[in-house]
Design a protein around this nucleic acid. Structure first.
Lengths: 220, 220
DNA sequence: GTCTATAAACAGATAGAC
DNA sequence: GTCTATCTGTTTATAGAC
C-alpha cells in the first residue's frame, strides 16, 4: 500500500458491494430502522458519506439489498433447478431440493444472511417485500409445489398442495426464525452438522409420511 | 385494595396497563430499537413522561412487556391444560391443544400481539428472551411433547419427539412470522375463519400422517 | 470516489409545576 | 400521577474540500 490509510480507495464496485453485504447482514439481524448508517459504514469499512453517494440514502440502500438478494437467489435457483438429475424419482428430487434449501437457509455462510433479511422483511412488510417475494419466496415455493405434484399426482397449484409445501418449508424456517429458543429447547449448543442432519431427517420423515398418506388415500 | 382515600378509579393502573398493551403491539411489530417512546405514549394516550414514571425507561418497559406476556400466557396454559377433557384419546387432545395454540397465535385479537412479540424477541435475542422462553415457549412445547408421547408411546423428551413437535408448531408459526408472503402465495386476501380452518386441517393431516407412520414402524 | 464538517430532525431521559 | 419544557446525545442527509 502506498499510503498509511486503513484501507481506502480501491475500485468503486468493491466499496458498493461491501456496503451491500454489510447492510444485508445488519438489516437482517436488527431491521431497517434499528440499524444506523454508521454501523453499516463501519462494518463495511466505508465512509458514511459513501452510502449517500452510492445509493442516495438509507432507504435506497435497503431496497438495493433486496434487489441484490433477489437477483442472486433467482440465478441460484435457476441453475440448481435446471439439472433434473436424471434417474431420480420426483420424491427423491423433492428431498434433494428441500435439503438444498435448508442448507442455504440454515448453514451456508454467504446465503444465510439473505434468508434472515427476507424473513425479517416478511415479518414487517415494507416496499421491499414485493421484490423479495417475487424473487425468492415465490420461485422456491412454486418449484417445490411442482415436484410435489409430480411425486403425488396432485395439482401443483391447489391450496392443499401449497399448504403442505408450506408445512414442510416451515419446519426448516423455524430454525432460522426462532433459532435461539429452538436450540435451547432441543438442548443444542449450536446448529452444527449433526444438528442439521437431524433437522433434515425429521423433515424427510414428515415428507415420507405425507406421501404415504396420499398413497393410501388413492387406494380408497 | 380499596383504601379510604376517595381517589379517582385507579388512574394509575389504567395508564400503566395501556402503556404495556400499546408497547407489546408496537415492539412486536417493529422491534425494540425501532420503536420510539413517543409512538408508544401516543398509542397508549399517555404522556411521554409516564414511561419513565411507571417503568423507569424504555428498556424496563420492554422487560415489563415480556413479564406481562409470560405471566398472562402461563396462567392461560395452566387453566387450558388443567382440563384433560375426559374420554378423549391423547391424539384427540393433541389436536385440540394444537388448535388452541393456533387460535391464540393467529386469530385471538388480544393474544396475537403476544405471539408477535415473543417471536420477534426470539429472532433477535435480548435479555427478555429468557423470560419469554421459560414462560411461553417451553411450557407450550413441553405440553405438546407430553401429549405426543402419550399418543405414540415415544419418549417425551427425546430429540426426535421435540423435533416432530417443532415440525407441527412451525406449520402454524409460519403464518404468524411470514404472514404477508404466505397469504400472497396462497392467494388469500386475509386470514379469516375459512383460511384458519384450512391451515388447521393441514396441520391435522400432518399429525395424522406422522402418527400413522409411527404406528407402522411399531409393527416392524 | 472518498473524505470532513455540519445542518436539521429526532431520540430517551429528567426537572419541576400542578 | 400527570403534565410541560428542556437537556443531551444521536440520527440521516448534505455541502464542499481534495
Amino acid at each position: 500500500m502506498a499510503r498509511g490509510r486503513p484501507s481506502p480507495a480501491k475500485p468503486t464496485e468493491t466499496s458498493r458491494q461491501r456496503l451491500i453485504v454489510a447492510a444485508i447482514d445488519l438489516f437482517g439481524r436488527r431491521g431497517l430502522e434499528a440499524t444506523s448508517t454508521r454501523e453499516i459504514a463501519r462494518a463495511a469499512r466505508v465512509n458514511i458519506a459513501g452510502i449517500a453517494y452510492h445509493f442516495g440514502g438509507k432507504n435506497q440502500l435497503y431496497l438495493a439489498c433486496a434487489e441484490h438478494i433477489a437477483t442472486t437467489l433467482k440465478a441460484g435457483f435457476a441453475t440448481q433447478m435446471k439439472s433434473p438429475a436424471p434417474g431420480l424419482t420426483a420424491q427423491e428430487q423433492l428431498r434433494l431440493t428441500i435439503a438444498g434449501v435448508a442448507k442455504l437457509m440454515l448453514v451456508t455462510p454467504s446465503i444465510a444472511p439473505f434468508a434472515r433479511f427476507v424473513l425479517r422483511e416478511h415479518m414487517e412488510p415494507g416496499p421491499a417485500l414485493d421484490t423479495l417475494y417475487t424473487g425468492v419466496m415465490e420461485p422456491m415455493h412454486t418449484r417445490l409445489c411442482d415436484l410435489w405434484a409430480e411425486a403425488t399426482g396432485r395439482a401443483a397449484d391447489s391450496e392443499r398442495t401449497k399448504l403442505q409445501i408450506f408445512g414442510l418449508l416451515s419446519q426448516v424456517l423455524v430454525f432460522r426464525m426462532a433459532r435461539a429458543g429452538a436450540l435451547r429447547r432441543m438442548g443444542w449448543d449450536e446448529l452444527g452438522p449433526r444438528e442439521f442432519a437431524m433437522i433434515l431427517e425429521n423433515v424427510n420423515e414428515s415428507l415420507d409420511a405425507l406421501i404415504a398418506q396420499v398413497g393410501r388415500e388413492r387406494l380408497t
